[in-house]
């Protein structure tokens, strides 16, 4: 006697969406913290944001937007049975995701060199508002970067399954789910970018 499992794509997608809701609220909790502390320290948040590089932030935003587009297009490619194009687009997504992380690494490195990181005594001298701003900055972008890494691993697994034809034009719900996850990561960045870089 075998338990037969039927494939049901809508079930799988519903599960993914519900999971995304938990991610939205996970970051939502941080947005609550952000809004409270921004309300209490408007001036120092405003001044602290000057030290972030708008140029790198903008480049990273565009990188993520393009990577979102490539993974969305890879679904169309799979639907049209164009395996090569799908793999190419997913490869681009992975490269762009890595590029985002490299940028982030240099950005963080610059701050840490200037002794701006949570717990640093130099930062503590700059006052409460700066401590909270950078605390939130490192925590939120750090958590976001962690999600980028998870997303990249997810996409790499999916790419491997496409190579082995496990994901094909008949069965691509996993590709769609990895896309949904990646878009959510993008979505969160769309809000992080103005809240940290553009409040000068």
């Amino acid at each position: 006697m075998i338990l037969v499992t039927h494939r049901d794509d809508l079930t799988s997608k519903t599960g993914m969406w519900l999971f995304l809701f938990t991610e939205m609220l996970l970051f939502g909790g941080l947005f609550i913290v952000y809004s409270v502390y921004r309300y209490r320290n408007p001036v120092s948040f405003h001044l602290a944001a000057h030290d972030l590089s708008v140029a790198i932030g903008t480049i990273n935003t565009i990188i993520l937007l393009v990577s979102s587009t490539t993974i969305a297009m890879s679904i169309t490619a799979i639907q049209k049975k164009n395996k090569k194009l799908a793999l190419l687009l997913l490869g681009m997504t992975i490269v762009l995701g890595l590029a985002f992380l490299v940028n982030k690494y240099f950005e963080w490195g610059k701050h840490i060199k200037e002794h701006i990181y949570p717990g640093s005594s130099v930062l503590a001298l700059r006052g409460h508002g700066d401590v909270l701003f950078y605390g939130l900055y490192f925590f939120m972008t750090g958590l976001h970067a962690l999600h980028i890494i998870i997303g990249l691993v997810f996409i790499m697994v999916i790419t491997a399954s496409i190579l082995r034809d496990k994901i094909n034009s008949e069965n691509y719900v996993l590709l769609e789910n990895s896309g949904l996850y990646w878009h959510l990561v993008d979505l969160i960045w769309i809000f992080l970018f103005p809240l940290f870089y553009l409040i000068t």
Binding site: H183, P194, L195, L198
Partner: peptide, 23 residues
């Protein structure tokens, strides 16, 4: 208004991502 406008633009951007990219 700076922050308000930045957030409105972010909201418009996310509605595009949600509606088109996320189907």
């Amino acid at each position: 208004l700076t922050v308000t406008i930045a957030l409105i633009i972010a909201a418009v951007k996310s509605s595009f991502v949600l509606r088109i990219f996320m189907h």
